[in-house]
């Protein structure tokens, strides 16, 4: 019980420090320095990267295969968020094309992995 509380407080401190760094001194952006809404873009990319690293932690630690598949699925949805944020900052709308294609492809790959987990072959 005490160990759990200690882990919680440690995680809270680490995540709030990272969030503070992201929100108050945003990461330097090397791409597209002249485009609009750059502050929103930098902070949004920072938070999405933090979420992606949390997903990767679950991939690393996950005790079963289904945990890893779930976090890969969530990474796919986060990448759609990346594409959307890139498309508002650069005003190039083909980023949204990448997002749509990624959504459909990640759905199909998740279904295939679920079939594989169940122990069936792909053509059933």
């Amino acid at each position: 019980m005490k160990k759990k509380l200690l882990t919680y407080i440690l995680g809270l401190i680490v995540i709030s420090i990272i969030l503070g760094i992201i929100l108050f001194s945003p990461l330097p952006s090397l791409i597209y320095p002249q485009f609009p809404l750059l502050g929103v873009f930098r902070r949004a990319v920072g938070i999405l990267l933090l979420s992606a690293f949390l997903c990767l932690y679950r991939v690393l630690r996950g005790s079963t295969a289904s945990d890893r598949i779930v976090s890969i699925d969530m990474l796919g949805i986060l990448i759609i968020g990346f594409c959307a944020v890139l498309s508002i900052s650069t005003r190039r709308n083909w980023y949204m094309d990448i997002g749509i294609a990624w959504a459909l492809q990640s759905f199909i790959s998740t279904l295939a992995l679920a079939k594989f987990l169940e122990g069936k072959h792909f053509d059933e």
Binding site: S66, I77, F107, L111, A114, L117, E118, G119
Partner: peptide, 15 residues
């Protein structure tokens, strides 16, 4: 997204 969640839940229960 709900469909893939449903498929994952079902297959991991069966596994």
């Amino acid at each position: 997204s709900p469909v893939s969640a449903h498929a994952l839940a079902r297959s991991s229960h069966k596994a």
